[in-house]
Design a protein around this nucleic acid. Structure first.
Lengths: 163, 163
DNA sequence: ACCTGAACACCGTTCAAGT
DNA sequence: ACCTGAACACCGTTCAAGT
């Protein structure tokens, strides 16, 4: 079921009809609703693996780079992740919490941010929620836009975090 | 008809049912579609006045402030404008062109940007389309978020434009 | 020429009936 | 206990019929 959902999201975007997913997965629409009461629940479930990978990547970067550089690279990965499916950023506007994978990402990101702030290269008044919201926003803005423009917007965002 | 549309957008967001607008305006849904083939067309029409005001404001700021300060203040107004209706930023993801009001905003904004770049306080590789997309994105991210957080995100964006 | 609104296609969500 | 899918409510869009 999650496999089918991921395929459908990939092929037709995060707003694909849930009916279509249920049909292709060979279950009743009611079953899908019982397991995943909201579309966000289903999205978080299909993204769980990549979110855990994102959390893991934060730790690796934290070990291999300066705090500022690690945060910058990780944010780039975060933005990319928010574009996993077409239209995903819109669905993640208010970031969903509760799931283990989400908590892992928040925790890993917060740690990177705190280190970068301690190192003195990132403004002290931003928190992870700011970063998450802005990253989602950049993913939103960069949808349907060329690669160079996307890269530039990401740079603007990351530079804006510096102090 | 535009008055009713504006009221409905204000009251129920940019994604309010077009049927509802037509009914309250006392016209058939077909008539609404003939005048405004897409929702964006209708939105641009209801926002025409405020967009012209935004263009005018750019000229005033350009005269009264340093180029960098003028751009910064104008972007703040632009972001605010992109939040005129709940959910408006999503509809403006790809900015609509063609209308006079839109052209006026683009031209006014481009002028402010060019001056700020000439003054040397804004990176040279961004164009107005970047600014427009990012401003819409900030409006998107700042929806349903407290005032201080919204202000901080705007600051991050504007700081990121500096060089 | 302009307007109307029924008709069609589609989607989200619930819940009675079935296993 | 779990599943199904018909049923309901809703929306966008078109277009034949009416003025």
């Amino acid at each position: 079921m999650l496999t089918v959902a991921d395929e459908e999201f990939t092929a037709h975007g995060a707003e694909v009809s849930l009916d279509q997913i249920a049909k292709r997965a060979g279950v009743g629409i009611g079953t899908l609703y019982r397991h995943f009461p909201t579309r966000q629940d289903l999205l978080v479930a299909t993204l769980a693996d990549s979110m855990l990978a994102l959390a893991k990547k934060a730790k690796e970067l934290g070990a291999a780079r300066s705090a500022g550089q690690a945060l910058a690279e990780w944010i780039a990965a975060y933005v990319k992740h928010s574009s996993t499916y077409q239209g995903l950023s819109i669905c993640l506007n208010t970031l969903p919490d509760g799931s283990d994978a989400c908590s892992a990402v928040v925790e890993a990101g917060s740690t990177l941010l705190a280190r970068a702030q301690a190192e003195g290269c990132v403004r002290l008044d931003v928190d992870f929620e700011d970063i998450s919201a802005m990253a989602t926003a950049v993913a939103f803005a960069a949808e349907d836009v060329g690669k160079t423009r996307r890269k530039r917007m990401l740079e603007v965002f990351i530079d804006g975090l510096k102090r």
